[in-house]
Amino acid sequence: VPQRAWTVEQLRSEQLPKKDIIKFLQEHGSDSFLAEHKLLGNIKNVAKTANKDHLVTAYNHLFETKRFK
């Protein structure tokens, strides 16, 4: 089981690129989880459509539901 890579403050910070969060989610989330949160596909394309709040919610949801690969 992966550990949380970032704190809530870090997740919301401008310093953390959306692409980093997407990469983490794609590496650790199950396909059904990723599909549900519309996070499947090319990281660049996902970054265009997903806002930061959406990614933070998905990140927290992944750990709450433990839907890891």
Rank of each mutant, 00 (worst) to 15 (best):
V1W: 15
L16T: 10
G29L: 02
R12P: 03
A35T: 10
N45D: 15
V56E: 06
K69N: 10
F33Y: 06
P17L: 12
I43W: 12
I22H: 01
K19G: 12
R4S: 09
T65R: 06
K44A: 15
T7F: 03
N60K: 06
A47K: 12
L39Y: 01
Q26E: 02
K66H: 10
L39T: 01
Q3Y: 06
L62T: 00
E27S: 08
A35M: 13
D20C: 12
P2E: 04
K38G: 12
L16M: 07
L55G: 00
K52I: 05
D20H: 09
A47W: 06
Q26L: 09
L40G: 08
S32W: 07
A58V: 06
E36W: 08
L16I: 14
Q26T: 05
Q10M: 10
L40F: 11
N45H: 15
I43C: 08
R4I: 05
T65D: 12
F63N: 02
N45A: 13
N42W: 10
T57A: 12
K19P: 08
A5N: 15
K66P: 03
P2L: 05
N42E: 15
P17Y: 09
T65Y: 15
A5P: 15
L11A: 02
K69C: 07
H61R: 12
F33A: 00
K18P: 08
T57K: 09
K52S: 04
D31H: 14
D53S: 09
V46P: 03
L16P: 06
T49A: 09
T7G: 05
H28C: 08
A47C: 11
Q10C: 08
N60C: 11
A58N: 01
P2V: 08
F68T: 02
K38S: 12
E27I: 07
G29Y: 01
E27N: 10
K23W: 07
S13I: 03
L55F: 07
P17C: 09
Q3C: 14
H28T: 07
L39H: 00
A35W: 12
L55H: 01
H37M: 13
H37G: 02
Q10D: 15
F63E: 01
K66N: 10
V56D: 02
E14V: 11
L16Q: 02
G29E: 00
T7S: 09
L16N: 03
T65Q: 11
R12I: 10
G29D: 00
W6C: 08
K52Y: 12
